[in-house]
Design a binder for these strands. Sequence first.
DNA 1: GTCTATAGGGCGATAGAC
DNA 2: GTCTATCGCCCTATAGAC
Lengths: 202, 202
Amino acid sequence: MTDPSAAGPRSRGSYAKGLARRQEILDAAIDVFAARGAERTSLRAIAEQVGVTHAALIHHFGSLERLLVEVYLESARRLEREEPTPEGISPVESMRRSAQRNRRVPGMVQLYTTLVAAALESDRPAATAFASERFAGIRATLAEQVREGQAAGRFRTDIGPEQVAALVVAASDGLQTQWLLDPSVDQVGALALLETLLAPPR
Amino acid sequence: MTDPSAAGPRSRGSYAKGLARRQEILDAAIDVFAARGAERTSLRAIAEQVGVTHAALIHHFGSLERLLVEVYLESARRLEREEPTPEGISPVESMRRSAQRNRRVPGMVQLYTTLVAAALESDRPAATAFASERFAGIRATLAEQVREGQAAGRFRTDIGPEQVAALVVAASDGLQTQWLLDPSVDQVGALALLETLLAPPR
DNA sequence: GTCTATAGGGCGATAGAC
DNA sequence: GTCTATCGCCCTATAGAC
């Protein structure tokens, strides 16, 4: 995070003008992804659409890897702003909603899958940090929701919140992938099934 | 599948000698992956370790993408041969076993994840075919196991076998990824949890 | 049939001019 | 801050030796 182009706007050694330009480029890059999906996402292809050279992108973001992470994060922030996740819904339901939201932005799910795959390589620090933090964060949020749900009697109490959280995230991501490869896979149904299984026995 | 280097040995217009050579190269390539993981997997890097030119790999496999698919498939066949999956185990248990088996070959899980991510891109026909067929095949197998289990009273009967199959595959793949990024994730525990949830209420 | 040598086009990243 | 120029690497394709 000592590198000027590392992470958030805060960490850059510049002033408002540079940040504005950076945001401008990010906005344009997001439009590119939204319009054409996650393919052909080379620095040069993005730069051409944005109207700069690929070297300018490197200047602002440091590497393609970091640019892709920023694109995903900003895109996710926008979706959350436009269509906030309601309070007090179940973990499965909240994952279902965010999955459905992401699916409306064409390249987003591919980009996400690409980043997670890259995160498993040892020489992709930005992708690794992104995926690790995202998974840890979501699991923490979901686990808390599970605890609340258990206290309120909406979930069986004989199961561990952390395990449920990991399971729900895994199921959501994995079903998304299967559905993309074969739309006949009943993603919503399988998630609904999981929801049922987590309910207290009656 | 009309291309000489397309898929299995059968589809090549050659005789024993060519097939043997192809297999020899494949074996060497697998060793390379097993030894150094899935990174640095360019045609040239593999060719160097195997002791041929990268053009020879193209000759035998057609493209890097197809070579990677073949490496994964052959590697999986070997593991299955060395340590066959027992009969009559539950879907969750069979996924847990194969995951644990794959984990002993260092680059294998990364390679798998890479292939699945590539499969979502529209210009990766080999990866797409691989992933589609693998998911469909596993779902079919698991769904059948679920039906048998339901008949034998080992599973709740109020759930759809196909949905359960998709859910178990998703959970297994997704938990593997989370565990790789953070070994404190209780992969086995979460799968055991799923197993419990699928059992008939008592 | 198998392979080497090589060329073509694209990539990410860097150095340095402006 | 952005550019041009360039480096070294990549995949793919082809020509032709053996």
